[in-house]
């Protein structure tokens, strides 16, 4: 088992999710892809990116 697969399994366990063995390979591939994408979002952001909410000010909300 690779380090990434071990990490994904540990994260699923921490979340209380028991993945059926037959579905594990697909979940692992999807999760690895998701973690790769999440890593892209960790760059420095400007102060204007403060997530005061998930709403858009333009929508009048």
């Amino acid at each position: 088992m690779t380090a990434t697969e071990q990490d994904i399994e540990a994260r699923c366990q921490a979340a209380g999710l028991v993945v059926p063995a037959d579905l594990l390979a697909g979940v692992t591939r999807e999760a690895a892809d998701l973690l790769r994408m999440a890593a892209l979002l960790r760059g420095p952001r400007s102060a204007a990116a403060e997530p005061f909410s998930t709403r858009w000010p333009e929508s009048g909300q």
Binding site: A15, L23, D33, A38, R42, R45, A48, T54
Partner: peptide, 30 residues
């Protein structure tokens, strides 16, 4: 299978991942 595998993968995301995504969203929208 496809549904379970795609959505269950969300178990690996952290609160920080989601906050960073919302911060990125503000920049991309701008």
């Amino acid at each position: 299978r496809f549904t379970y595998q795609r959505i269950a993968a969300g178990a690996v995301l952290s609160a920080a991942d989601l906050v960073q995504a919302f911060r990125t969203r503000m920049e991309l929208s701008a």
